[in-house]
Design a protein around this nucleic acid. Sequence first.
RNA 1: GCACAGGUGGGUGAGUGGUUAAAGCCAACAGACUGUAAAUCUGUCCCUCUCAGGAGGUACGGAGGUUCGAAUCCUCCCCUGUGCA
Length: 338
Amino acid sequence: MERALTLLKLPEVPRSECEPLVVVVLGPTASGKTALALAIARRFCGEIVNCDSVAMYREFQIGTAKPSAAECAEVPHHLLDCVDPLADVSAGEYARQARLVLREIALRENVLRESGQRRHLPIVSGGTGLYLRALLEGLFPGPQRSEELRKKLRGRAEQHGTERLHRILQRLDASAANRIHANDVPKVIRAIEVCLATRRPSRRTMTELWQQGRESLQGFRILRLGLNPEREVLYARINQRAAMMFDRGLIAETERLLAKYGEQARPLASLGYKQVMQFLRGELDRGSALAAAQQAHRNYAKRQMTWFRKEPDVHWLAGLGDDPAIQAEGIAAVEQEI
RNA sequence: GCACAGGUGGGUGAGUGGUUAAAGCCAACAGACUGUAAAUCUGUCCCUCUCAGGAGGUACGGAGGUUCGAAUCCUCCCCUGUGCA
């Protein structure tokens, strides 16, 4: 650790010599992130760190398109299939855990390298933009969510309308109110929550906390590989994959999960599961549920693309991650950085 | 063949003489996002021009007609659904 710090200060030593690399595989759903991440992991003896919010939940398998048991046995996976379906995860919690995992991998790498063994390359793979940003850039130093306060605020929104809630924020933090649309209730609530829950020596607004900046991930060089297939190809792939999920037992899985955990399990409200729930409630027939699931996935992919377009320094790959040519391109990009 | 119902912008679906380029919803496209994010929200969405406030053109199955004015009323034609033959 000491040595690493002194090395950092010497300008003639290339950064690559002192800071371990973390590869980030990002892209919309069904673009083949898992396949690409696995290909890179095999080539460089990597370990995969999941960055998909729903894939963190245990027992949600088919609808989340998790890697197979064989793939998990072959390549170490982290933050996958690890959270109780009734628990709540959050971007902050994810970032904390993911950073811990990255540090562990880096430490292990040092030990292994000194003993002349294989290297371990951390590969963050996932489509949850906020989680990725929380991991890489950090969050502002705000309070965690407070369920009681939220319940109260949500109730007030239902009673008096969203405008009223927005006016409260206007009074607490005009700048934040300006940035957040009145209709965006969850964000308005979070901002109010931050203002109210932060009563240090003096109360701070969310805007003030923002200005303190965020703690970005330190000690790693980051290589971002972005999957960007053609829109039509992606959408076709999404449709096909959703149909496959239905064929492979998504409905049975959802029924089982529903029986075991009840409707309040949050991931039951996510893509695919949500539509199957509608089917189980008799609101949709199977065909309509599938069509709705496909639609929801397409819409989600689009939102992911607008998020990732903003991501800095992405090495874009114009294709699907299952494509060997794309994998080769990705591997070549990693090779250059290593 | 007769009877009824209906044909509206990419889809669905309001509108039944002017304030309607035509509600709402969906799709599509673009965007936002700092602890529920696979969530939530915003904008654009007939064409052309614009000093960006607007200007012009085309549009509610087709062709005519009534009217100062028609998606809306009338006539004929075409098509679709349902019922009776």
